[in-house]
Design a protein around this nucleic acid. Structure first.
Lengths: 219, 219
DNA sequence: TGATTCTTGTGAACATTTTCACATTGATTC
DNA sequence: GAATCAATGTGAAAATGTTCACAAGAATCA
């Protein structure tokens, strides 16, 4: 039973589901039929109580005394995350980061397909990049709609990111993954996530500088 | 006064400092001398109480009735995060993601310099990539030490990531940013951060699928 | 100089998240 | 088929993180 109605779902719980999912994929490949919350927790570097609590937010998937069925739990979590389907995405900005993402296998493996590329550089427009023709960003409304795209990836320079996002929002896209190092403004009903690579380095830097202070690394 | 001794620092507070830093850079460019916690909060999409609380973890940087001195606070936060210096980094795996990172401006802007590239592909070794010669991963110990490198970026395929990390840990590196979609094991005294791009998409997917359930997007 | 205004810094209240602990339940063994 | 074992699911406690509310300090103005 995937459904379980009311209860606020913490963002952190969702991120852990992604983590569990990854562990389950490994377990499945290893041929495990069942897994205990303890083992799952160990592999995800969390506690068993947390695993059980997180899963309990969405239903009860295990068998007392036995554990969780690996294959089935994997499928259930995929369903909860909404990745038991294909998401079609448009990518804006075919520069360094952008082109790397086009061939990033992990996206397609999880059902995230980049099906359209947009840029405003005339030298790039029309050229074929890993099997996808780069379109003029001017024509994006029609092309996005025709392609049935529901998510956008922003990989343009920070200076123009807000303009592109405004356009993307204007044509009705509700989910955006942003790689530009800038705080974008979007309406309340648009989901925006920032992939902030420098921020992660800053955290590492902080940890290094404060090594003596903090007892536990604890990431 | 940057120093302020005991008190546990939440990870989330550190990530917000990165955010504030970015806002302060914008404010500085705009020519602002001072900024109130309210304005800073607004731009960082947080509450003013949180801004004040976060800063209070490290000292008192403001002036009552006036606000915080933009330039100075920016410098203070940079010092807290340990980015008031240059960090030299080695990058492992000059594939799609790896090569994109080499030219990622935001890293250098924040003082994170990629000074060595390593790969195990004989066709790449010896070639010059954006001004850096790609070295054989076999020789990394000597080269890393000579170059005075303290951080590593892992951008190799997931299948070999653990081996590379083991090697990197073995030569004494204590801070690692990992782009491979896999849960790496490192000793307790090594700081590891994962840049998990598919995870962000999974969160977006979840949000889309549960639009009706959740009242607030609230990211 | 005194009154007024503004905004910080902070203890305390509140809210959320994590951990604990154990009763419950299903599988397995003898 | 009763006894034993294992591990879930879940209230409740503990810990952690966020927001509130206001006293206190600093600048400005009259």
């Amino acid at each position: 039973m995937t459904a379980k109605p009311k209860k606020r779902i913490p963002e952190s719980a969702i991120r852990r589901l992604s983590l569990y999912l990854r562990v389950l994929l490994v377990l499945e490949k290893e041929g495990a039929d069942t897994v205990s919350s303890k083992e799952l927790a160990y592999r995800a570097k969390r506690t068993s109580a947390q695993v059980r609590q997180d899963l309990a937010l969405f239903g009860s998937f295990g068998t007392r005394g036995l554990g969780y069925p690996v294959r089935e739990l994997r499928a259930q979590i995929a369903a909860i995350l909404g990745i038991d389907r294909v998401w079609r995405m448009g990518l804006f900005g075919v520069g360094n980061i952008g082109s790397a993402l086009v061939s990033y296998k992990e996206f397609s493996r999880q059902g995230f397909q980049i099906v359209k590329l947009f840029d405003n550089d005339q030298r790039k427009i029309g050229s074929n990049h890993k099997g996808i023709v780069i379109s003029d960003i001017q024509n994006m409304e029609q092309e996005m709609k025709e392609a049935g795209i529901e998510m956008a990836i922003i990989a343009v320079p920070a200076t123009v990111a807000q303009y592109i996002v405004d356009d993307v929002v204007a044509i009705g896209i509700k989910a955006i993954l942003n790689f530009a190092p800038i705080n974008l403004k979007v309406p309340d009903d648009v989901y925006l996530r920032n992939e902030n690579m420098a921020m992660e380095l800053e955290y590492l830097s902080f940890a290094m500088v404060n090594k003596h202070t903090e007892k536990k690394p604890k990431f």
